[in-house]
Amino acid sequence: MNSSISGLDIVLVHHPVVNATGEIIGSAVTNLDIHDIARAGRTYGVDNYYIVTPYEDQQMLVTEILDHWITGHGASRNPARKEALELVQLADSLDTVIKLITKKRNQVPQLIGTSAKVQEKTLSYSDVRAKINEKEAILLIFGTAHGLAPQVMEMTNYCLPPVGANTGYNHLSVRSAVSIILDRLLSA
């Protein structure tokens, strides 16, 4: 049961991302990211929440967690959690996600990146909100570790401005950033 009101898709990329020194790595999937981002997505009417990891052990972990909460014992114990986790789809690459969305929407989605750093092709939250309201196919891309790899950022059409205040500290968890960004884009 998907009650999407936005037509917006989101993706959490675990590979390729960068570490603190800028090396391209793959990061581990966390249980908290699966649950909390799905709950935020369901709350704000996101269509699908994709998790990208090419690693079989990480894919198995995601599958086990989803099975427990969607069809297993967790489904009857917590129907609200089941409803949120039904948004989650697992993919081995960002290219796979783009193909799935293109097929679903009959158009290639605009790729909107996120970063804790200001990017060159930044588009304001109000401009992205207008694209969502016009029902454009949009994939909002979030990264793990220390952010999306340069090759992912190069794929994007635009990037959102960083979340945060002018404190000089900008190390939000991706769960927090997703929630803030969804609120900025999808609140009435």
Results as ranks from 00 to 15, higher is better:
residue 178 V to R: 00
residue 185 L to M: 09
residue 90 L to H: 07
residue 168 G to N: 06
residue 181 I to T: 08
residue 108 V to G: 02
residue 124 S to C: 08
residue 61 L to Y: 08
residue 2 N to P: 05
residue 83 E to L: 13
residue 184 R to P: 06
residue 54 P to W: 07
residue 18 V to K: 11
residue 10 I to H: 07
residue 39 R to L: 10
residue 66 L to W: 11
residue 159 C to K: 04
residue 102 T to I: 02
residue 129 R to W: 01
residue 124 S to A: 13
residue 27 S to H: 05
residue 71 T to L: 13
residue 103 K to I: 11
residue 114 T to Y: 00
residue 112 I to L: 03
residue 144 T to M: 01
residue 6 S to G: 09
residue 150 P to H: 01
residue 57 D to M: 12
residue 13 V to F: 01
residue 114 T to R: 01
residue 51 I to E: 03
residue 125 Y to G: 02
residue 61 L to E: 04
residue 18 V to T: 12
residue 170 N to V: 04
residue 187 S to V: 04
residue 72 G to Y: 04
residue 173 S to Q: 01
residue 91 A to H: 02
residue 109 P to N: 08
residue 143 G to I: 00
residue 133 N to E: 15
residue 85 L to P: 10
residue 174 V to F: 09
residue 18 V to M: 07
residue 112 I to V: 14
residue 123 L to D: 02
residue 110 Q to V: 03
residue 101 I to Q: 06
residue 20 A to M: 10
residue 54 P to R: 09
residue 40 A to D: 06
residue 42 R to Q: 14
residue 146 H to D: 13
residue 86 E to P: 03
residue 154 E to W: 00
residue 15 H to S: 14
residue 138 I to T: 09
residue 87 L to E: 03
residue 177 A to E: 07
residue 109 P to D: 04
residue 11 V to C: 02
residue 38 A to D: 03
residue 144 T to E: 11
residue 132 I to K: 07
residue 32 L to R: 11
residue 123 L to Y: 07
residue 151 Q to N: 14
residue 5 I to V: 06
residue 7 G to S: 02
residue 33 D to N: 11
residue 12 L to G: 07
residue 119 Q to F: 04
residue 22 G to H: 05
residue 40 A to V: 12
residue 58 Q to R: 05
residue 26 G to H: 06
residue 91 A to G: 02
residue 154 E to C: 02
residue 147 G to A: 09
residue 186 L to V: 08
